[in-house]
Amino acid sequence: MNDLDDLFALARAEEPSPALLAQVLADAEAVQAKPAPRRSHWRFLRVLLAGAGAFGGMATAALAGVWIGMAEPAPVAAVTEAFLPGTVDLLPTYDFLAEE
């Protein structure tokens, strides 16, 4: 039905009133004038590290690093001893972490 296409074209030609455009623009300017909501640092870090999975992995690795540094299990101690003979124990009070 060509009449239908004619009606569709008529509907497309309908223009917003200047008052509506002015109101929409006034809203835009009012929202723009407000300070943008602060983004949380955690969200930024998560986006930076591409997702929670990577974030969890990094956290686990960091904790493991701290534990290995503190406890210094025998295999690690052997390597440390080979490279740095006579290493000074900087944190003697944390030796209990290595005890079984």
Binding site: L21, A28, Q32
Partner: peptide, 15 residues
């Protein structure tokens, strides 16, 4: 940009 978006999108969403 606010003016452009207003002129571009308001007629469409109104129609």
């Amino acid at each position: 940009a606010a003016r452009s978006l207003t002129l571009r999108l308001t007629p469409r969403v109104l129609a």
